[in-house]
Amino acid sequence: MEYSEKPDLVINGVTTASGGDYGKVRIDGVGTVEGDIVAESFDANGMTKVRGSLATDDMDCDGMITIDGHVSAGKSLVDGLMKIKGSLKADRFTVNGMLKVKGDCEIEELRMDGGFTIDGSMNVGRLYVMLNGQGRTREIGCESIQVRRKRRTPWAALITWVLPRYAIELHTSSIEGDDIDLEHTETEVVRGNRVMIGKGCRVDLVEYRTELKVHPSAKIGKGVKIGG
């Protein structure tokens, strides 16, 4: 089996390890990896730092993880905060918490519960967002997207009222896709086949092909039907 040929990396406590090609990687505590790392599986708990790029088939991160380079992952589960300074590529990605990416995101299926800041653009096959914090990205291209918001606590409602900048909303410049179902989203353009603009949305322009539904509390500038 190929598994046994590569060494495993185990970090407990406060340690620095070098990058390289590993079998299983398990980090508990405060671990730093110097350089690029390739692993069959990557399991991090606690504070993890990778000073390089990370490539793995199976990723499970709890706690805080910072990656200076790019990430390419297969199936991934992140609980906590993940910061990526490069770009992110993944198959199935689940985040409970916060995701921050400086570059672009290309993911087949992304489920997000929490908030995110993606400075590049997002290209996601199926995107499910449950907003529990702010979502910001330059633009979204997808096959299907669904955005929902958790019920706000009275405190959150008060903060939003005092500081509208911190409202729990999704902000982006454009959303393009086939099936679009939004709530609490502010964007300039939405382009898609079936478009549902739910409560709390502010959209300047909607271009749709087959269907457009607008919630009474949503504000849209213009809805245009295009194509045959």
């Binding site: 290309e106 291209g141 997808c142 096959e143 299907s144 393009e176 086939d178």
Partner: peptide, 11 residues
């Protein structure tokens, strides 16, 4: 073609 297909092919 649709937006979804285009983005898919790009990915």
């Amino acid at each position: 073609i649709s937006y979804g297909q285009l983005y898919r092919w790009k990915r």
